[in-house]
Simulated assay, not measured.
Amino acid sequence: MGGTEHLAVRREGATLVLTLNRPEARNALSLPMLVGLYDGWLAADEDDGIRSIVLTGAGGAFCAGMDLKALAGKGMAGEQYRDRLKADPDLHWKAMLRHHRPRKPVIAAVEGHCVAGGTEILQGTDIRVAGESATFGLYEVRRGLFPIGGSTVRLARQVPRTHALEMLLTGRPYTAREAERIGLVGSVVPEGTALDRALEIAELVNANGPLAVEAVKASVYESADLTETEGLRRELERGWPIFDTADAKEGSRAFAEKRAPVYRRA
């Protein structure tokens, strides 16, 4: 279903798995990959049967950042996608989760290199699992560049500012354990098992009421820039309607009857 030559798409039950699929270049971002990513985010949001998304990389790497030559569409790898980028000049930012937030939870499964643009995409995901040998970092300043994928805004909101600034200003690599320690990833698992763990987490998400899950995610993000008072007000606006849904009644009924709930997004 869907995908491009650099972005593989498959279903695992109620989970849509998007795989960055350019292993010969450590899954460096290309125009076909970005088009596939954006289409994948949209497909997940439009399909009520999909309750979660897992983002991972092929060949033992997550993403080594942007391939500027490929993004320019030079050569066969990107030629047929130039019209997409021309029609929507913001497409690459949406693909990288800078200007688009899927309403379904996005779980990152990271192995190997997750640097530069890879670390920037990571900041747009919701739950993050890393293999023991994963490497993170924002290398842009080492090349005299700027991490314009959102890191100077997002990173200090996701990890303590001192750690954000050290990562941004030194451009040094970070091990998976360091990334876990500062809070960039939630857990570290044995090498080669990040995808398995991400799919396990996705199954836990999928078992819950989808309307509740999506409302909780939306509430967390929309309240991030509000005062506590305003955030609590908005939480009630998001939360109270959930109690009136058929799914909420089904959840309570299933609990009383000691059975698994059957949610219908109603």
Rank of each mutant, 00 (worst) to 15 (best):
V106W: 06
W93R: 14
R98I: 00
A164Q: 04
R51F: 05
K69M: 10
H99K: 12
R177F: 13
A70E: 15
P147F: 02
Q158S: 10
I53S: 04
T162M: 06
R161Q: 13
A176C: 11
L145H: 09
E178A: 09
R177I: 06
L122I: 06
L122A: 03
P89W: 08
R103P: 01
V189T: 05
T125H: 07
L138C: 00
I50N: 07
H163R: 06
V153H: 12
C63N: 15
T152L: 14
F136P: 01
V188N: 04
Y81I: 02
A108S: 15
G112P: 07
R51H: 15
A164Y: 02
V153Y: 12
G60N: 11
I53A: 04
G137M: 09
M66I: 15
A134G: 08
G137K: 08
R181W: 09
M167Q: 10
S133H: 08
L165D: 12
L55D: 10
E132H: 10
R154F: 03
A130W: 03
A77E: 14
E132Q: 15
A134T: 08
S52M: 03
K74A: 14
S151K: 01
P102D: 08
E120V: 03
A130E: 05
F136L: 09
L55S: 12
A77I: 15
S151C: 02
T125M: 13
E79H: 12
Y139C: 00
D90V: 03
P173T: 13
L169Y: 12
V129R: 01
I50G: 08
P190S: 10
G137I: 08
G144M: 07
R161L: 14
R51N: 11
H100N: 07
P173D: 09
D88K: 01
V115R: 05
G124K: 02
K94M: 01
P173R: 12
P89R: 12
R103T: 14
D83A: 15
G65C: 07
I121F: 15
V110E: 04
M76F: 02
D83M: 09
T119N: 02
Y174M: 14
L145A: 15
G149S: 07
R51M: 06
E166S: 13
L97K: 01
I107R: 08
M96G: 00
D47M: 10
L165Y: 08
I148C: 05
V129P: 01
A108D: 13
L169R: 13
A108T: 13
I50A: 08
M76R: 13
G124D: 04
V106M: 07
D88S: 05
G57M: 09
L68P: 02
Y81W: 14
R181T: 14
R181Q: 15
A108E: 13
